[in-house]
Nucleic acid binder design. Structure first.
Lengths: 246, 246
DNA sequence: CGGCCCGTTGACATGAATCAACGCACGTGG
DNA sequence: CCACGTGCGTTGATTCATGTCAACGGGCCG
């Protein structure tokens, strides 16, 4: 709530061009020159606003698109027939979501805003067209899809092999690094999701999450107040996380 | 071991063209016409043989490629700094592996043969070139990457939310469906991996896996003899699996 | 001010890991 | 052909981590 907006795109309601967007170094335009960027801009809708708790997309609906997050945060989750849900990821500014539509041309998971969120939308049709004209957009998209796969693999490792404390440490360490990459503070930040969601993502009960947080606080590794987290001993956090990716 | 080879590519040592390969309807050539297929064929190495326990690729080595499995089976796994490993998937004929190299241009997980295995190799360089010439190969690759993402998401759901019996049922039901798609028997097949690997994949101890198998046998849902599995009550198996994807 | 949601904590139950032993299948060499 | 060793899988006994149930408190919003 008291998050200081760094992204220029959050500071005003004018729509920022890719060129001037502070996120372009993470986002799709990453490898593009200014001519190419122009073509890209014509293909995307940069004005999409999603209010907290609204959906960016839902599973099985016809329209499918790729979204770049300009500000705010998004959770993606998969629902099973039996009614259980698995949160697949929490996505921040600069992240790209929607690759789950690559398989069947429509989304198989759903995306919901955790905060008021601004996104750029690139419909699958436009994406297809774009790929024909701009080889570099294809490369960049591959790169971004690769990032998603990396993330999912790490999540599988976390869920499959780690104990609760390691899982939480992995998550926090990771989030800290992601914040750093965005020029947010790596040692102090707000979680944008409720405990329920984080517990689900980490494959544990809310109570277990709460206890584990309290424990890590007792050990002076972190300090927690509601959704505010301070990392007091990042070295210990890292070693707990058994992080494979430094 | 006593697996009856169905793929034509396994029956002889002659190298089969994509056009005549029985797997082409799963594989990259899926959406290509015969001219396009020809271009594809020139870009791939169709002669690669991997003996049981050998590596198809390993994490962080420089060369990176995409591989289509013609026969045999492959496990992919991620190793963490702390030495623990998570098996990410078991891949059968027609499956494509290696997308983990999309992010950084080199593989981040490793792939090892569970059986003697034949693969087609498409180097990342050739893949890049191919995308320039053949738009449909890009589409097809997107589709295949999407499949991998689907799989990983389902794995996260399984590991994060399900109990041991549900996890095992999900795996068996899934494998049964994959066999069916390949014109193998959906009700009777050999597991190609040792218990250790399957337990790791499912995020449980070997002993737990063994007990759960015994239990499902006692309930007449399956019958197990060593690595041979017969599905006796696929309806019950499906309902146990809580499968989201029928 | 009051109600409600969110998060925490405690007590207890339980599912799964661990430790240990065993048996069987298979390959190897005598 | 048989004896042996080894790796793989199963089963039992026990421990332990985490889930479940229940109560409580505090912040936030109407």
């Amino acid at each position: 709530m008291r998050r200081i907006p760094i992204s220029t795109s959050q500071e005003n309601n004018n729509i920022v061009s890719c060129k001037n967007c502070s996120l372009s170094k993470f986002c799709l335009p990453r490898g593009l020159n200014s001519d190419e960027m122009k073509i890209l801009e014509d293909a995307i809708d940069k004005s999409k606003k999603i209010k907290k708790k609204e959906y960016l997309y839902t599973a099985n609906k016809q329209q499918a698109a790729i979204y770049a997050i300009k500000s705010g945060s998004i959770k993606t989750y998969l629902s099973s027939a039996s009614g259980s849900e698995q949160i697949l990821g929490f996505h921040l500014s600069g992240d790209i979501v929607g690759f789950d539509a690559f398989y069947a041309g429509k989304h198989t998971c759903s995306a919901q805003a955790l905060d008021d969120t601004l996104v750029c939308e690139l419909s699958m049709q436009n994406f297809e067209k774009l790929c024909q004209i701009l080889p570099s957009i294809r490369e960049e998209m591959m790169h971004q899809v690769g990032k998603e796969i990396q993330h999912d693999h790490l999540a599988m490792l976390t869920l499959g092999q780690m104990q609760t404390e390691e899982r939480l440490a992995t998550f926090l360490f990771n989030l800290s690094q992601r914040n750093r990459a965005r020029n947010f503070s790596e040692s102090e930040f707000q979680l944008t999701m409720p405990r329920q969601d984080l517990a689900n993502y980490l494959g544990m009960a809310v109570e277990t999450l709460s206890r584990t947080l309290s424990n890590m606080q007792k050990k002076k590794i972190i300090s927690v107040q509601q959704r505010g987290v301070k990392i007091l001993d990042s070295e210990q956090l890292r070693s707990l996380s058994h992080s494979s990716c430094q």
